[in-house]
């Protein structure tokens, strides 16, 4: 098969969207946005320790992709994982408590910000090592192929991870064995403080699988409908036995790499321009208003979500510290 650089053609929102769908996307994106804003505040107050990587600005990617999946499909991502775990439907209370290292957290505080997991919902984690989730996600896909269960694995990675050797190794293996995997590159333009053009010989990343015959497409990752539509086509491709596919989502993170990022590598103007002209939430809100939604209705939704998040933050802060004895549990199987 000759390498195809582009296999899927996607016009933004080509498949259209009903108002109730748009409303659902708005709700899910707002949930992530408000959650992350609150996480940033709790970090500032010393309630979240270590590192905390916020997803603000990138919400359309995970919400759009998640809406293109079927129950049972596997998802895996890197350390910027709060949005992914929320989009998989995990209770924000558990996520916030996990961030705070409390007993009420999904892993009793043992995983923390970068290592959210929900095997029950086929979410195989946040992963703190850049790129390490890519071979693992390829393995999840291999399991689906082996079992012939009709499921696919969505493996997220960032523009920074794309240059890790194990990513290239995964691409080859996935193509060789025609594994049902969708690699979603969240290109937010900076790997920590290093811009894509200073880290990658070519700044568009969707072609990285070309040498292995893996089709790729670049998508406006700030537009949830474009993401969803490309996700639907990519999922269909992967599920049909055609092998892997790469979606490069061009997106942007508004906040620093982590909470301790001095952000000397970009200008305030650049961030402001992205926020004011490309915000994924504003885009959906606008579409809804154009199709007849009332402003008060959308404001009420936001208010409701702020309430949910305040509740999650309260839960996390009130949740007890883990028992020190927990240090010694879950290391090996317990007799």
């Amino acid at each position: 098969m000759a390498p195809r650089e582009k296999a899927v053609r996607v016009e933004a929102g080509a498949l259209g969207a009903k108002s109730e769908e748009l409303l659902r996307y708005l709700r899910e994106m707002l949930l992530i946005r408000r959650f992350e804003e609150r996480a940033g505040q709790l970090y500032g107050r010393g309630l979240i320790g270590g590192y905390c990587h916020l997803y603000i600005g990138q919400e359309a990617v995970v919400v759009g992709m998640q809406s293109a999946l079927r129950d049972g499909d596997s998802v895996i991502t890197s350390y910027r994982d709060h949005g992914h775990v929320l989009a998989c439907g995990i209770d924000p209370k558990e996520v916030m408590a996990e961030l705070c290292g409390r007993r009420g957290g999904a892993s009793h505080g043992k995983g923390g910000s970068m290592h959210m997991f929900s095997p029950e919902r086929n979410f195989y984690g946040g992963h703190g090592i850049v790129g390490a989730q890519v071979p693992i996600g390829t393995g999840l896909a291999f399991a689906h192929r082996y079992r012939e269960d009709g499921r696919i694995a969505v493996t997220y990675l960032g523009d920074g991870a794309i240059n890790q050797g194990q990513v290239a190794e995964s691409f080859n293996m996935a193509a060789l064995w025609k594994l049902p995997v969708v690699y979603v590159i969240e290109n937010n333009r900076y790997g920590m403080g290093t811009s894509v053009d200073r880290a990658s010989a070519r700044t568009d990343l969707y072609h990285r699988g070309m040498a292995h015959g893996i089709p790729g497409e670049q998508i406006d990752g700030m537009d949830v409908l474009a993401v969803r539509d490309s996700g639907l086509l990519a999922a269909k491709h992967a599920r049909s036995g055609e092998g892997p596919i790469i979606l490069e989502m061009v997106t942007y993170r508004y906040r620093g790499h982590s909470m301790s990022d001095p952000a000397k590598y970009r200008t305030r103007e650049e961030v402001d321009r992205m926020r004011s002209e490309h915000d994924p939430i504003d885009q959906v809100r606008r579409r809804l208003l154009e199709s007849g939604a009332r402003e008060a209705e959308l404001d009420a939704l936001d208010k409701e979500i702020r309430g949910l998040i305040a509740e999650a933050a309260g839960f996390a802060q009130d949740s007890p510290e883990p028992d020190p004895e927990e240090l010694f549990t879950d290391v090996f199987v317990e007799a």
């Binding site: 923390g112 240090l327 010694f328």
Partner: peptide, 15 residues
């Protein structure tokens, strides 16, 4: 350190 994975922030002082 104990023969465990380095723990989360709340119990690190016990490690």
């Amino acid at each position: 350190g104990w023969d465990t994975v380095i723990p989360g922030l709340r119990v690190e002082r016990h490690y």
